[in-house]
Amino acid sequence: MILAYVDHRDGAPDDASLEALTLGRTLAERTGWPLEALVVGRAGRAAAEALGVHGPAVVHVAEGDGLDGPYAPQAWGAALAEAVRAASPKLVLSPGTDRGHETLAHAAAALDLPMVANCVDISPGEPTVVLRQRWGGTVLEEAEADGPTILCSVALHAVQAQPAPAPADPEVRPFAPPVPEEAFRVRVIDRVEPDRGGVSLAEAKVVVGGGRGVGGPEGFRVLEELAGLLGGAVGCSRVVTSAGWRPHAEQIGQTGTRIAPDLYIACGISGATQHMVGCRGAKRLLVVNEDPEAPIIAHADWVVLGDLHEVLPAVVAAVRAATQD
C-alpha cells in the first residue's frame, strides 16, 4: 500500500499534496498497490471529497482533541506514524513543502524509518530506488533506500497534479491515534496575516531583479521604477542581501523566495546556481549584463549587453513613451 499524507487548509488540500498524490497514483498503477491518503484534523473530512478525483481508495482522518486544533508538528508526525504502524504501507509520500517535510521528518524519527526528501521519481522494490533533487534541483541523485517502509517527500512542482481518469468515491475512515502529551509542546499559537499591500515577489507576474552589478542600495531606484511601470516586484540575489542592500524577503534563490513570473528581468546578476534555483520557475528571462560570459546568459531568452545604469533608464523612458502614446 502507498500512503499519501495530505496537508489541507480547513478541508482544502494544498497543491503540493495533490502533486504528491498524483505521483502516488502513478506508482500505485506501476506496482498494483492500493493508494490511500491521510489527513489530520476533523476539518480534513471535507478534504476527502476533494481527494476523490485524485484516486485514493481510502482517506484516513486522524482526529482527536489536540489534532482538531492548530498545527502541532510533532503531533501531526505522531498521527502519521500511527497510521503507518496500523497499515504498514511500503511507501509514504508527503508534499515537498516546509510543513510536508516537517511532519514527515517527525514521523520518520518517531518510527525510526528512513526518509528521503525531494524525490522526483520512485521505483519501489528491494531496495527502493529514488531520483531526488540536490542543490535545489541543480543536481539529481539516484539513491537506494532499505526499510519496511520508506518515507519520501515529493519535490515541489516535479510532478503536475492531475485528477485520476476515473474518479473514486473514497471511503472516509476516521481514527483517533494516541498522541503523547509532549507532542503538543510546540504548536502554532498565533498567525500574522500576509501584507497584501504591493505585489508579492512569489506571485508577481513581472520581477525585476538586481545583483552585485547594481552597485549599492541607491542603485535599486531604477529597478523599482521599472517594476512599478510594469506592475511587478523587485527582487535581488544573495550577494545583495548579504551586503545588507535589500531585505532578505526580496532574495530570489535556493535559500530565499522561489519566483514564477511570466517575465524575469535580471540586472547585474551573474547567475550563481543558488540564484538560478530561485528563478527557474520564470517563464521568460531577460538579462541585462555587462559580461557576455555571465553564466545566467545560458538561461536567457533575451539579452541586453551593457551597464544596467545606462540601459534601465533608457528602458524606463521608452516604456513611459510607449504608454503615453
Partner: peptide
C-alpha cells in the same frame, strides 16, 4: 538567447 543589443540603444527592442 537572442541578443537585443548593446547599451541604451537596445531600449526600443526591450
Amino acid at each position: 538567447a537572442e541578443i537585443l543589443g548593446h547599451g541604451p540603444e537596445a531600449a526600443p527592442k526591450v
